[in-house]
């Protein structure tokens, strides 16, 4: 990686150590949304924050090359489409948004029917929304000198 971009070497090393754990914690929060506090809303933003940490530490060019903007758009569309598909597949159970999958045993990971899949779909939406917000301030903020036209 280019040593000149981003912050100092200490910040980069600590970020390299930490970012995997943050990503793992976000995935844990998303997958355990139906049995513990959290859910797709919080976990998606935690996953987005791990990418934002990388972006702040290593400079935006490195990360924009790895996660380009069309890929984020694809993730956003995939999340929305997945949530709508879950809703439409509820017609197997009789009506829109019915919980037709087998319910399982409480306090296990595979329980509660369609709720974990919906959590994953919402998490995709939140990840892409957070990344869009950061792209907004990072791409727009060149601060071209303002024009003085009277």
């Amino acid at each position: 990686m280019n040593q000149n971009n981003g912050m100092s070497l200490i910040v980069k090393t600590i970020t390299r150590l930490l970012v995997g754990f943050i990503l793992l914690y976000g995935i844990y929060i998303v997958l355990h949304g139906h049995i513990s506090p959290g859910g797709g809303f919080a976990g998606g933003f935690i996953i987005a924050l791990s990418y934002i940490l990388l972006m702040l530490a290593f400079g935006k060019e490195e990360i924009l090359r790895k996660v380009p903007q069309p890929m984020i758009s694809f993730l956003e569309s995939l999340g929305a489409l997945m949530f709508l598909t879950i809703a439409v597949l509820g017609f197997f159970g009789g009506y829109f948004f019915s919980n037709w999958l087998p319910k399982g045993i409480p306090f296990k990971l595979l329980s509660a029917g369609t709720i974990p899949i919906s959590n994953v779909a919402l998490a995709l939406l939140e990840v892409s929304l957070g990344l869009f917000g950061i792209f907004l301030v990072l791409v727009l903020l060149k601060f071209t000198p303002p024009k003085k036209e009277k």
């Binding site: 139906h34 513990s36 959590n119």
Partner: peptide, 14 residues
């Protein structure tokens, strides 16, 4: 009936 234990998540998604 839902067998979920987080009530807020169940209200939001079910």
């Amino acid at each position: 009936t839902i067998h979920a234990t987080n009530v807020v998540s169940a209200i939001n998604l079910n």
